[in-house]
Structures are given as C-alpha cells and as structure tokens.
Design a protein around this nucleic acid. Structure first.
Lengths: 158, 158
DNA sequence: GGCAAACTACTCGGATATCCGGTGTCCGAGTCATCATGG
DNA sequence: CCATGATGACTCGGACACCGGATATCCGAGTAGTTTGCC
C-alpha cells in the first residue's frame, strides 16, 4: 500500500482535533511529523479532490476537514490516496493461449477473481466500518493527553 | 498486488486438475496461458520454497502440487508470491517531529495501525478460508468441461 | 543378450538487465492581508 | 479618522526529475534418459 496513506490518516486526525475553525498550511502539517512538505501537499490535494478536506489558498489558507470526523471512514482516506482500483486485478488469462482458443465461452466470471474480490470486500467493509471519530476515541482512551498536546503544538509559532 | 499472484493461482489450479502423478515443466505451464516462461518459472520457484509445489530437475522433471488441493489456501499462494509483509506498514511517524520530542511515551500501539491491521486481518481470514479445492468445486459447477479440457491440452504434444 | 559407462538433452535455480509507478521536488496561478495614500 | 487602491507575501495546484522494486530474460548446475561399447 502507498506510504502516503499513513501520513494522510495521521494528518486527518490532527485536523480533526484542531477543529474546522481555521485552516492549516501543508507545510505546518508536514513539520509536525518532519515530513517532506511538498510531497504531503500532494496527498492533501488528493484528499481535497475526494471531498475529505477543503483547501483555501492565500495567506491564512491551508487545509481543514470538510466533514465531521464521524462522517469520514478509513476507507474514504485509503481510496483517496491509494486509488479506487482493487489490489487484485483479473486479466482474464483463462481466455489466452491454446486452452480456450475459440472453443469454450466462459459465461461466468473467473472463480479466482471472485474469491479474491470476496476477500477484498471484507477488507473494504472493515475499513468502511471505522471512522476518524472511532480512531479519535481510541486514542483519547489510551493517551488522553494527546489531543491537547496537538492543539498546543499547532497554536505555538515555530 | 503482484501480477504473478494471478498466474500462480491459475497454474496451481491446473496442476490440481492434472493430479500429482506427473511433473509439468514451467515452459508447458506457461504455454497454456501464453505467459513468459522464465518469469513464470520465478513464481513457481517461490511456490516451491513455500512448500506448495515440489520441483524435479532434469528430463521428465517439472512441478507438481505438494499437498492435496484442500490443504492449500489462497492465503498460502498470495503469501508465497507477494511476500509476508502487511500491506499497511506503520512507520511510527507519531514518534517523529517536535510533537513527541522526549515528552510523551506511547505505551499503546498506534491506533491507526491497529485499525488497518484489523481490516487486513479480515482480508487474510477470507483468503485463508478458501482452498484450491473450493475454487475447483466452483469452476466445475459453472464450467463442467474445463477440467477435462485442461487434462487433454496437457496430454497433447505441442 | 545383458550390463555398465559415457553422453546428451532437458529442467530447475539463481544471477542479471529493463521498465514503470511511487517518491520527491520545484515553480507558477490565485488569493487574502497589509500598507500606503488621499479625502 | 476612514475608505480605497496597490502591493506583497503566502498558499495551493499541477508539472517536472529521480529511484527502487516489480517485470522480464538469460545462462550455469544438476539430473534422468538414451545410446554405445564391451563382456
């Protein structure tokens, strides 16, 4: 899976804690984790195209969460960064070669593709069942000080 | 996911239908789907290392299934080709940057990593629940002529 | 004819090139805050 | 003092290099079948 998925998810969590009052520039969001700013910007653009973030240009601009945290699933984030294509891509090799040259016509979908899709669907279902709000709840339960700390860090000037 | 996963799975299915009486060379297995023989050979070696296939050198050599089809899960095949690493790799970026410099010690695992692992576990569970024998049953139910056809093709000299 | 040894052809196995998508970077378009200026 | 216009800096957005891993290929090690020669 894409590396940017991790960056994007953590950044979304930070934006969720900061609230949607103000917009945060990509450079600031990147500095929080010492990530390359320009590259994180690329990922944030993808999130904006997917409707997860809203972007504002110019001074005082930046990114903010477009929806409530409980309306954004991990599936949304992963799809925005990693693309909508399934991990297993059936190329229908059963139709190639001398095996099926003109004789057999497969009316049913490839059984292997079906099995892979079934597994991938379970994966997507699990990701779609967890929202950013759920992850926030987990973090606050295990590390209660984190949200305030994030807010203070972004309030300070660096 | 790796392209070779599809080739490997289809080839395992063919070997299952042919039975483990005789060994089939990689070149013949590749010709069935018009695949590059040397590259498929690479995948078959990975399957052999994983204990899914057994390889025999020399004339009359080749590959054959090492276990009964109901003892080989799709998870086994995918792991053999694509590697055992999880798709989502947590790099613990929460420990980097000024955010957690020396102050907070996270005793609990990363919540995002946990969520991703949960989804991936569901995926692995689905793959592990389906064996080659299950896929064979599906194919025979939808396309009954396929197994015999495969056997005939591999019996013929080309 | 039977047997053994050398030979040959075949197959796996790993080492070696090539190509493409992710990784990383940079600069231009657009925008908003600021500041100077005049009324 | 207030309104207004120009100015400037800041930020996003997309276009441009770079690199590692997947893709694809080739050749050597080893083996089994075959042939040939000898007893």
């Amino acid at each position: 899976m894409n590396e940017g998925v991790e960056w994007a998810t953590h950044t979304c969590l930070n934006l969720a804690w900061l609230g949607d009052e103000r917009a945060v520039p990509a450079a600031r969001l990147a500095a929080f984790y010492e990530l390359p700013a320009a590259y994180l910007n690329k990922q944030l653009q993808a999130l904006a195209r997917a409707g997860i973030l809203t972007s504002v240009s110019g001074p005082r601009g930046g990114f903010r969460l477009a929806k409530a945290p409980d309306q954004v699933t991990l599936m949304d984030v992963v799809t925005a960064i990693d693309g909508p294509d399934p991990a297993f891509r059936c190329t229908e090799i059963r139709l190639r070669g001398g095996s099926s040259s003109g004789t057999t016509r497969y009316r049913t979908p490839c059984a292997i593709d079906t099995a892979m899709r079934k597994a991938e669907l379970a994966w997507r279902r699990e990701l779609a069942a967890q929202t950013l709000a759920d992850v926030m709840t987990t973090v606050e339960a295990t590390n209660p000080g984190v949200p305030d700390k994030v807010r203070r860090w972004f309030d300070d000037t660096h």
